[in-house]
Structure formats: C-alpha cells, structure tokens
Design a protein around this nucleic acid. Structure first.
Length: 106
DNA sequence: GACATGACGGCAG
DNA sequence: CCTGCCGCCATGT
C-alpha cells in the first residue's frame, strides 16, 4: 500500500510549481514501465489527498484527461493557469517546456 | 473466482 | 499523418 502509490504521491508532490508531468513518465520512473494506468488509478486515490497536486499530472499528449474527476471540470485548468501554465482546448500549450521529468530528482 | 473497466502508452495498419 | 488495437496492474461488481 505504501509502495507504488506512496511513490507516485511523493513524485507528484515534488512537481515544481508551473510544471507538469505525465502518467507514463511517473510509471516509467517507478519501474512499472508501460503501466501508466496504475498511475491514473493512484491518482484516483490521490484525489483524497490534498497534498497531491493531481492537476499537474497529464497524459502524454498534455491533455487534461482527468479534468472530469475534479470537483468542477474547470478546476484543473484553473489551477494550471493560476500557476502560469497556458491551457487551450483542455490541452497544455508548450507542453514540452513545462514538462517536468521525475528524472530531474536524481 | 471471473469478467469488465479505467485520470494511459506504444505499435501496427 | 491519422486511426485503431493490444498490453499493463489494480479495483469494483
């Protein structure tokens, strides 16, 4: 229980403000390469943790695929824009620039 | 105990 | 270049 999920939460909590990452990047970083779905499932649990900025985790396309899981569909975009991230059509602009890889931790 | 689904990703056509 | 299918692990029914 405190293995994969806790690792995911820890990584997500370490995402710098104004930066985002992808499910696959986290999964690969944790060793469960290809199991991005697990990260998504972990995010579902993270929904209960206020310390986990799930809004900074997007899919590989930089699309706000999980916006529907927030209190309001616009909450995720609102939070990202509040951090200086430009979101257009539910997609992050300059995704490559704001993208943050867990490997940066090392 | 088995089947179906999900906040994804990669590869093939 | 765009679309579709399969694979991955865990959870819920």
């Amino acid at each position: 229980m405190n293995n994969f999920y806790e690792q995911v939460y820890e990584v997500v909590k370490l995402i710098p403000k104004g930066r985002v990452t992808s499910y696959g990047a986290i999964a690969s970083f944790l060793g469960s390469k290809g199991s991005a779905r697990l990260v998504g499932w972990a995010m579902n649990q993270a929904h209960a943790l206020v310390d986990v900025p799930a809004h900074r985790v997007l899919n590989r396309n930089g699309l706000l695929s999980g916006k529907h899981h927030f209190p309001t569909p616009t909450a995720m975009q609102q939070l990202l824009e509040d951090e200086g991230i430009t979101v257009v059509n539910d997609q992050v602009e300059n995704f490559d620039k704001v993208f943050w890889s867990p490997n940066e931790l090392i």
